[in-house]
């Protein structure tokens, strides 16, 4: 099976003017870094991939995940995970409830509980299940967000400046953790960043987006 995230001749247009063009195949376990100054439309590209493109934009081209065309699918059927620069843990749920939210339906209560406990212990957060996410440190919250995303069993991962809010030391640590996990799982990853450090650490191909509006 061809495990990859392939972006075929994708072009996002606003008011008849092309904003972003990209044509690339991200292999399993590979991290594609998409770089460019802010305002160039990096997040718009991710919105197109997750199926949340604002109607002021128009997207063309196909998105194939493991050979299947997912371009027309609603967001919840795409099986693409995403991490933002904010952890976006749901503030009304406990850490465990946030993780349970990510686990696909099915399985007994005990099984789901075990999954949560295992996932928490994988990232060194044993016993955090009942905690209020607001009481966690930034690094802990980032790890919970990562685990929540992984528990939903995505087939590809998008990173939207995912490390830019963390301070330097924590940043390298979380980045290393994320990269290690996606390689273990052999996921194709598309990372949007404005930081060359991130792109270098990813060790994959780098695409520079240019601003059409300025040229």
């Amino acid at each position: 099976m061809n495990k990859s995230l392939s972006l075929r001749k994708i072009c996002i247009i606003r008011d008849g003017i092309p904003l972003i063009e990209i044509d690339h195949e991200v292999a399993a376990g590979e991290i594609l870094s998409v770089m460019g100054p802010s305002g160039v439309g990096k997040s718009t590209l991710l919105a197109y991939l997750t199926g949340n493109l604002d109607p002021v934009f128009r997207g063309m081209g196909e998105v194939l995940l493991n050979g299947k065309d997912i371009t027309g699918l609603p967001p919840h059927k795409r099986e693409i995970g995403i991490l933002f620069q904010d952890d976006l843990l749901f503030p009304h749920m406990s850490v465990g409830e946030n993780l349970a939210f990510g686990i696909p339906r099915g399985g007994s209560r005990v099984e789901r509980h075990r999954k949560i406990e295992n996932a928490l212990s994988d990232v060194g957060l044993v016993g955090f299940s009942n905690r209020d996410p607001a009481t966690l440190s930034g690094g802990q919250r980032a790890r919970v967000a990562l685990v929540r995303m992984l528990l939903s069993d995505p087939k590809a991962l998008l990173l939207d400046e995912a490390f830019s809010r963390l301070d330097a030391e924590l940043r390298a640590h979380v980045r290393e953790l994320v990269f290690r996990v996606v390689k273990e799982r052999n996921l194709p990853v598309l990372m949007v960043t404005h930081d060359l450090e991130d792109a270098k650490a990813a060790g994959g191909p780098i695409i520079e987006l240019e601003s059409y509006s300025k040229s």
Partner: peptide, 25 residues
């Protein structure tokens, strides 16, 4: 609305996002 994007990416249908994430928040 990134909360909705995250919830959707976790496999939650639009009405699930509405009831389980947006209304409680």
């Amino acid at each position: 609305t990134r909360n909705a994007t995250v919830a959707g990416a976790l496999g939650t249908k639009p009405w699930g996002v509405f009831w389980r994430v947006r209304l409680p928040m």
